Every structure is written in C-alpha cells, then in structure tokens.
Simulated scan of single mutants.
Amino acid sequence: MGTLEDRVIVVTGAGRGIGREHALLLASEGAKVVVNDLGGSADGKGSEAGPAVAVVEEIKAAGGDAIVSTDDVASAQGADNLIRSAIAAYGKLDGLVNNASILRDGMVFNVDDEQWESVLHVGLSGTFYPGRAAARYWRELSKAGKPVAGSIVNTTSESGLFGNMGQSNYAAAKAGVAALTEVWARELKRYGVRVNAIAPRAATRLTAQVGAAESTDPNAPMHPGNCSPWVAYLLSDSCAISGEVFVVYGGVVHRVAPWTLDDSWKLRKETRWAPKELADAVFETGIPSKAGRNTGLIR
C-alpha cells in the first residue's frame, strides 16, 4: 500500500511541470487525484483541456485513479466547483495542493496594470479561493461531529520570501501565499486541518521564460519531480507538521524561518524619539543588514 491509499487529493495547475509531477506521484502512492488545469500558457493566456487530460490518462495507464478538472481556480465559482467535483466523484476530500501560477516579469517601472493584476489574480486568488472552498467543507464536517484529517499544501516561492528583481507582481503574490499558510494553519487547526507550503527550486516552463531551461532529467537537482515526495509526506496521515514553509529541491528540504524581531539591531529610549536623535542613534548603531551585522555610517 502507498502512503496516500484512498485519500482524495486535488492538485491545481497539474497539467504540466511541478503540478504534473505531484499528481503522478500522489496517484502512485494510492491517492485518487483531481487533476486541475485551465491549460493556459505560462503567462496565463488561453485555455486547453489537453494537458490535464494527458496527465489523467497517464495516471490511469499506470493503474491509478484520477479525473480531469478545467475549472478556473482564480474565480470563486471555479474553485467552488472544483471542490464540489472532487466530493461528487469520490465522496470526500482529504487534501488540496495549490500549485497554479503564472509568470509575467517586469521591473516596477515597466509592469502595466494587466501584468500586475493577472499574476496576483492567478497566484494569490487562485490559492485563496480553492483553500476557502476546502476549508468550508472540512469545517462543516467537523461541526457535524465527523472526523477530519485534511491537509493543504500551498506553493510559494523564494521570490516572495526573499525578493527577486523584476518580479514585483509574482513576489507579492507568493509572499501573500506564505502569509495565508500561517494564517490558515492557525484558523483550521481546531477543525483537524494542517496547512503548509513549499517554495520549490525547479526548472519548468515558467523559469524557461527567464533563461532557465525546463529540466527533463529526473536525476537533475532542478527537476520538478524532486519536490513531490515532500508534498506527498505533508499530505499523509503520518505528518503532524502545520504552519511551516519549506524550500525544496534535489534531495534537500529546508525549513524557512518566518519573520522575527532582530535583537541584533534595536533602538530604544524611554520617551518618543525626535528625528535628529534618530539620525544620531542610527549613526552610532549602524545600518542593519540582512546578514545580521550592523554596518557603520560615514558622515
């Protein structure tokens, strides 16, 4: 038996790349998988059922169980329909992997309104709406006195966690996903639901837009399939982790520490600061750096 035997799991953005690898592995571990993909281009244009259909066919050919969904998860109606479809097909929902995203890079002075809004729409709303729909289902089960062992795995990015030039829209969306992960973990714990996120390092058709060719070698560190075993673990009954974010690549799983107060740099006095006082205090203390060291000022 696999580690996910008979669990029903929805994977968004599962027609290609990382999502496809998740769907294939989860099915091989015994899960019943809802393969969701709108089938658009890497920048979010168009739609086509083919990618999701192909993944479902591959799963079935290997003896697994899966169905196709082409719902638009960046809309409330599409996300609600996706979750209802999973429950209608299999009678329940055990896990949700929010993976759908698009990439439309540009420096802050070049990004137009449509680029900004489309990336936030797919990356952030496309995580929120399926998560909300799944949470409502599990909450109702719990309130009815039925046992719940749900799990959500969101997909953030190091761009959102640490920043990356040329990705104001993508970084904002992915930082929002990391924040949702921590909030949901706190909100849904009482209902028996765990929530975590991964920041995958993988070469996919999205990274190909910025010069990192898609990895097709399963032994390469940047192959998208390297991220899927950790996702399978986070979805399994043997996992008790919740509210965490992990960078995953190759054979590495690295926990990301959340925002914390930095005791290596702090200004303090008993009364309100005056601007001139602050200038002097910063000069004496040094400029805070991301390396955790203070850099002295010259004046």
Rank of each mutant, 00 (worst) to 15 (best):
S157F: 14
S157A: 15
D263P: 03
N196E: 03
S151Y: 10
V153A: 06
P147E: 07
L161I: 13
G192R: 05
E58V: 10
P224L: 13
L278M: 10
A173I: 08
A173V: 06
V119N: 11
T295F: 08
A144G: 07
T12D: 00
A27Q: 07
G150T: 11
R136E: 13
L261H: 09
L26S: 09
N169S: 15
A62M: 04
Y191H: 03
G13A: 09
G30L: 11
A74C: 04
D105V: 09
G286W: 03
H223L: 00
T156Y: 12
V34F: 04
V256E: 12
A79E: 00
S47C: 07
C227H: 02
F128H: 09
V108T: 09
S69R: 01
G251S: 12
N99M: 07
S236L: 07
D6T: 06
V97C: 12
S157D: 11
V119G: 10
V56Q: 03
L38Q: 00
A66R: 02
L82M: 01
H223S: 01
T204I: 10
A199C: 12
D65E: 14
G2V: 11
W273C: 04
S151G: 14
G13M: 08
G296W: 07
T295A: 05
E187R: 11
V111S: 15
S75W: 00
A42Q: 01
L297I: 05
L234C: 13
H223N: 00
V210F: 14
W273N: 01
S215H: 02
N99K: 05
T156R: 11
Q209A: 05
Y90W: 14
A178H: 08
D65M: 02
A175H: 12
V245H: 03
Q115E: 05
A86L: 07
T295H: 09
K189D: 05
A27R: 06
V68C: 03
A86R: 00
H254G: 00
G251K: 13
M165H: 02
A133W: 01
L93S: 04
A185F: 13
G106C: 14
T207L: 07
D43W: 09
A257L: 15
S28P: 04
